[in-house]
Protein backbone atom coordinates (compact mmCIF):
# COMPACT_ATOMS: atom_id res chain seq x y z
CA UNK A 1 0.00 0.00 0.00
CA UNK A 2 2.86 2.40 0.76
CA UNK A 3 6.01 3.13 -1.20
CA UNK A 4 8.04 4.57 1.65
CA UNK A 5 9.18 3.30 5.01
CA UNK A 6 9.09 5.21 8.27
CA UNK A 7 10.88 8.54 8.09
CA UNK A 8 14.01 9.20 10.08
CA UNK A 9 13.73 10.56 13.59
CA UNK A 10 12.80 14.23 13.49
CA UNK A 11 13.96 16.70 16.14
CA UNK A 12 12.16 19.85 17.18
CA UNK A 13 15.03 22.24 16.56
CA UNK A 14 15.52 21.04 13.01
CA UNK A 15 11.93 21.37 11.85
CA UNK A 16 11.13 24.32 9.58
CA UNK A 17 7.77 25.82 8.67
CA UNK A 18 6.89 24.84 5.12
CA UNK A 19 8.86 21.59 5.27
CA UNK A 20 7.10 18.75 3.43
CA UNK A 21 7.03 14.98 3.86
CA UNK A 22 5.35 13.01 1.09
CA UNK A 23 4.50 9.35 0.74
CA UNK A 24 2.27 7.48 -1.68
CA UNK A 25 -0.44 5.10 -0.54
CA UNK A 26 -2.69 3.02 -2.78
CA UNK A 27 -5.33 1.28 -0.68
CA UNK A 28 -6.41 -1.83 -2.55
CA UNK A 29 -9.47 -3.99 -1.98
CA UNK A 30 -7.16 -6.52 -0.28
CA UNK A 31 -5.88 -3.82 2.09
CA UNK A 32 -9.45 -2.84 2.90
CA UNK A 33 -10.47 -6.45 3.57
CA UNK A 34 -7.46 -6.94 5.84
CA UNK A 35 -8.31 -3.76 7.72
CA UNK A 36 -11.96 -4.77 8.04
CA UNK A 37 -10.87 -8.12 9.47
CA UNK A 38 -9.41 -6.27 12.48
CA UNK A 39 -12.76 -4.89 13.59
CA UNK A 40 -15.75 -5.49 11.34
CA UNK A 41 -18.30 -8.24 11.64
CA UNK A 42 -18.45 -10.05 8.26
CA UNK A 43 -22.23 -10.21 8.63
CA UNK A 44 -22.52 -6.43 8.94
CA UNK A 45 -24.75 -5.30 6.08
CA UNK A 46 -23.27 -1.80 6.05
CA UNK A 47 -19.81 -2.98 5.02
CA UNK A 48 -20.80 -3.70 1.41
CA UNK A 49 -19.85 -0.18 0.35
CA UNK A 50 -16.29 -0.97 1.44
CA UNK A 51 -15.98 -4.31 -0.33
CA UNK A 52 -17.92 -4.56 -3.58
CA UNK A 53 -19.56 -2.59 -6.36
CA UNK A 54 -23.09 -3.73 -5.51
CA UNK A 55 -22.71 -2.35 -2.00
CA UNK A 56 -21.31 0.89 -3.37
CA UNK A 57 -24.18 1.20 -5.86
CA UNK A 58 -26.67 0.80 -3.04
CA UNK A 59 -25.21 3.87 -1.31
CA UNK A 60 -25.02 5.92 -4.50
CA UNK A 61 -21.23 5.65 -4.72
CA UNK A 62 -19.27 5.38 -7.96
CA UNK A 63 -16.90 2.74 -6.56
CA UNK A 64 -16.30 0.87 -3.30
CA UNK A 65 -14.68 3.17 -0.76
CA UNK A 66 -12.11 2.98 1.99
CA UNK A 67 -13.68 3.04 5.48
CA UNK A 68 -13.32 6.38 7.24
CA UNK A 69 -11.53 4.78 10.17
CA UNK A 70 -9.03 3.22 7.78
CA UNK A 71 -8.36 6.62 6.21
CA UNK A 72 -7.93 7.95 9.75
CA UNK A 73 -5.46 5.15 10.48
CA UNK A 74 -3.56 5.95 7.28
CA UNK A 75 -3.36 9.61 8.32
CA UNK A 76 -2.23 8.59 11.78
CA UNK A 77 0.48 6.50 10.20
CA UNK A 78 1.54 9.38 7.95
CA UNK A 79 1.99 11.54 11.04
CA UNK A 80 3.92 8.96 13.06
CA UNK A 81 6.07 8.16 10.02
CA UNK A 82 6.85 11.84 9.66
CA UNK A 83 7.61 12.25 13.35
CA UNK A 84 9.82 9.19 13.67
CA UNK A 85 9.72 6.60 16.46
CA UNK A 86 10.22 9.04 19.32
CA UNK A 87 7.57 11.51 18.22
CA UNK A 88 4.12 11.47 19.76
CA UNK A 89 0.77 12.57 18.40
CA UNK A 90 -0.84 14.99 20.83
CA UNK A 91 -3.97 15.62 18.81
CA UNK A 92 -5.28 15.04 15.35
CA UNK A 93 -8.23 16.55 13.50
CA UNK A 94 -9.35 14.96 10.28
CA UNK A 95 -12.00 16.07 7.83
CA UNK A 96 -13.36 13.60 5.30
CA UNK A 97 -14.36 15.81 2.39
CA UNK A 98 -14.86 13.25 -0.39
CA UNK A 99 -14.76 9.45 -0.51
CA UNK A 100 -11.43 7.63 -0.88
CA UNK A 101 -12.01 4.94 -3.48
CA UNK A 102 -10.27 1.59 -3.80
CA UNK A 103 -6.96 1.87 -5.67
CA UNK A 104 -6.87 5.65 -5.50
CA UNK A 105 -3.29 6.82 -5.98
CA UNK A 106 -2.97 8.93 -2.85
CA UNK A 107 -0.21 11.45 -2.45
CA UNK A 108 -0.04 11.78 1.32
CA UNK A 109 1.42 15.06 2.48
CA UNK A 110 2.52 16.22 5.92
CA UNK A 111 3.43 19.89 5.89
CA UNK A 112 4.82 21.83 8.84
CA UNK A 113 2.78 24.94 9.63
CA UNK A 114 3.95 25.95 13.08
CA UNK A 115 6.72 25.29 15.61
CA UNK A 116 5.86 26.43 19.12
CA UNK A 117 9.20 27.88 20.21
CA UNK A 118 7.61 29.99 22.94
CA UNK A 119 6.18 26.94 24.68
CA UNK A 120 9.36 24.94 24.28
CA UNK A 121 11.54 27.83 25.52
CA UNK A 122 9.31 28.13 28.57
CA UNK A 123 10.07 24.52 29.44
CA UNK A 124 6.90 23.06 27.94
CA UNK A 125 6.65 20.24 25.43
CA UNK A 126 8.21 20.71 22.00
CA UNK A 127 5.09 20.91 19.84
CA UNK A 128 4.94 21.18 16.07
CA UNK A 129 1.74 21.66 14.08
CA UNK A 130 1.38 20.04 10.70
CA UNK A 131 -1.29 19.93 8.04
CA UNK A 132 -1.95 16.52 6.57
CA UNK A 133 -3.78 15.61 3.39
CA UNK A 134 -4.40 12.95 0.79
CA UNK A 135 -4.56 14.06 -2.83
CA UNK A 136 -5.88 11.61 -5.41
CA UNK A 137 -4.93 11.36 -9.07
CA UNK A 138 -7.97 13.48 -9.94
CA UNK A 139 -6.54 16.45 -8.07
CA UNK A 140 -9.04 16.18 -5.23
CA UNK A 141 -8.15 16.24 -1.56
CA UNK A 142 -10.59 13.74 -0.05
CA UNK A 143 -9.03 13.79 3.41
CA UNK A 144 -7.45 16.77 5.11
CA UNK A 145 -6.47 17.49 8.63
CA UNK A 146 -4.14 18.96 11.19
CA UNK A 147 -1.98 17.34 13.82
CA UNK A 148 -0.05 18.50 16.83
CA UNK A 149 3.00 16.40 17.44
CA UNK A 150 5.46 16.39 20.32
CA UNK A 151 9.00 15.84 19.10
CA UNK A 152 12.18 15.05 21.00
CA UNK A 153 14.72 17.86 21.39
CA UNK A 154 18.33 17.56 20.38
CA UNK A 155 19.48 19.28 23.53
CA UNK A 156 17.69 16.66 25.65
CA UNK A 157 19.85 13.89 24.24
Amino acid sequence: MTDTATGAQRYFEEVEIGEEYIQTQVPSRENVLEFLSTWSDPGDETRGRFTDQAGADKDGLQKPIVPGNMSASMITRLVTDWAGPLGRIVSLDISFRRPVQHNDQLTCLALVTERDDDLADAGGPAIVSIDVSFENERGEKPVQGTAQVELPRRDAE
Binding site: W39, T76, I89, D93
Partner: peptide
Protein backbone atom coordinates in the same frame (compact mmCIF):
# COMPACT_ATOMS: atom_id res chain seq x y z
CA UNK B 1 -2.62 5.35 18.31
CA UNK B 2 -4.70 4.46 15.27
CA UNK B 3 -5.50 1.06 16.78
CA UNK B 4 -8.33 2.69 18.69
CA UNK B 5 -9.99 3.39 15.33
CA UNK B 6 -10.66 -0.31 15.04
CA UNK B 7 -12.03 -0.94 18.51
CA UNK B 8 -15.67 -1.92 18.60
CA UNK B 9 -17.54 -0.20 21.38
CA UNK B 10 -21.15 -0.04 22.39
CA UNK B 11 -23.18 2.85 21.07
CA UNK B 12 -24.21 5.78 23.21
CA UNK B 13 -27.95 6.47 23.59
CA UNK B 14 -29.40 6.98 20.11
CA UNK B 15 -30.63 10.50 19.33
CA UNK B 16 -33.01 8.89 16.78
CA UNK B 17 -32.51 11.50 14.09
CA UNK B 18 -35.49 11.53 11.73
CA UNK B 19 -33.59 12.12 8.54
CA UNK B 20 -31.59 10.40 5.86
CA UNK B 21 -30.97 7.02 4.34
CA UNK B 22 -27.24 6.53 4.74
CA UNK B 23 -24.36 7.76 6.83
CA UNK B 24 -20.66 8.26 6.36
CA UNK B 25 -17.74 9.37 8.49
CA UNK B 26 -17.27 13.13 8.10
CA UNK B 27 -14.56 13.97 10.56
CA UNK B 28 -12.53 12.89 13.51
CA UNK B 29 -10.90 14.68 16.42
CA UNK B 30 -8.42 12.68 18.42
Amino acid sequence: PGILQTAQVGSPPDPEVKFGTTQFMAGSHQ
